[in-house]
């Protein structure tokens, strides 16, 4: 192994052995997608898959960070080690980010059984950073029982977390979701558990009842008669539990933790095997796509590509023909303009 490789392996081993500084530095390497991170992740991967990865998503202000803090409190009572990855958006213009989720969790800042890490999305859409899954893998390897992943919370399109997390919690606040929104909701479709937070506010129970009615109606327990074998593989909407919490007081949070544990246990019994496979698939394809993109950019960089792009800009060449030219250059053929 190279000298850098040895350093990466040492960092990974130290992180697993409980060295928090090493863990933090490894997470930085992961965020920056360095060579160290790749060596370390490959070393750590076989020892992962033990933590329960829980995604927490929902609109800004719904109470995600407050609920994460309440879940930490509850899990700590049971002596479980908890890690958090909290993602906030990066400015597309300056690249800067204000990472403020931690403010609500600082009561646990000095608890040895808790590790909280803020992450900027760094241009990645879908509510997570491109490296959030890898960060969760590292925390899994470091021995945390529960890894909570808080998304940016930009809205209905934020379904990516469901591909990373074993259990996805979608947070709503009372009357934040009118019926129309729930029906078109991409987010609710990926929920394993729906939580109506701010249970201390009027309308919380009513919102929960509406959601229950709607989610039951949309979930079809079996394929339509006569649909044939094909329909059996067709992804059907889940039928999530709907719970009410008051994150700011902790009310309803023990029941939520119990529901998380139940969902996890059901997954262990094999029900979630398809989800695990989907997660593996997403992870591998992500890497493949990234490598291909890099290779294409490297191979295709140069004056020939520039003149191809110029031709498209001037409407002398259509974008499909240009794409075919760039693809040919990736396959090894000489690009012709």
């Amino acid at each position: 192994m190279s000298e850098a490789g040895v350093r990466a392996a040492e960092l990974a081993d130290a992180a697993v052995a409980g060295d928090r500084r090493a863990l933090a530095r490894l997470l930085t390497a992961v965020e920056n997608r360095t060579a160290t991170a790749e060596v370390a992740l490959r070393r750590l991967y076989p020892g992962t898959g033990r933590a329960h990865l829980v995604g927490i998503t929902g609109a800004p202000g719904a109470g995600k960070s407050t609920l994460v803090a309440a879940l930490i409190a509850e899990a700590r009572l049971a002596g479980r080690a908890v890690a958090v990855v909290a993602v906030d958006p990066s400015s597309p213009i300056t690249g800067g980010a204000l990472l403020g989720d931690r403010v609500r969790m600082q009561a646990y800042a000095s608890d040895d059984g808790v590790f909280i890490r803020s992450m900027a999305s760094r241009g990645h859409a879908g509510g997570l950073a491109a490296t959030s899954t890898a960060a969760a893998t590292v925390l899994d390897a470091a021995g945390f029982d529960l890894v909570l992943l808080e998304t940016v919370g930009t809205g209905q399109s934020e379904v990516e977390v469901a591909r990373t997390a074993a259990t996805t919690v979608v947070l709503e606040a009372p009357d934040m979701c009118d019926e129309v929104q729930a029906i078109k909701a991409g987010l609710l479709e990926v929920a394993d558990i729906v939580v109506v937070n701010k249970g201390d506010r009027p309308g919380a129970q009513r919102t929960a009842a509406q959601l229950r009615a709607m989610l039951t109606a949309s979930a079809s327990p079996r394929p339509a008669p006569g649909a044939g074998g094909e329909a059996a593989d067709h992804p059907r909407p889940k039928r999530p539990d709907v719970l009410v919490t008051t994150a700011s007081t902790g009310e309803g949070v023990p029941a939520l933790l119990a529901a998380l544990d139940r969902h996890r246990a059901a997954g262990r019994d094999g029900l979630a095997d398809a989800a695990r496979l989907a997660r593996a698939e997403a992870q591998v394809w992500e890497i493949v796509a990234e490598r291909l993109r890099d290779r294409l950019h490297r191979t295709a960089a140069g004056p020939t590509t520039e003149s191809t792009l110029r031709a498209v800009a001037d409407h002398r060449l259509d974008p499909y023909a240009a794409a075919a030219l760039l693809l040919a250059s990736l396959a090894g053929g000489p690009p012709r303009a």
Partner: peptide, 16 residues
Amino acid sequence: LARGLRDEGFEVVYTG
């Protein structure tokens, strides 16, 4: 300061 530094391109963690 936290907001200003974000606008300057820093990643800023605020503790409260």
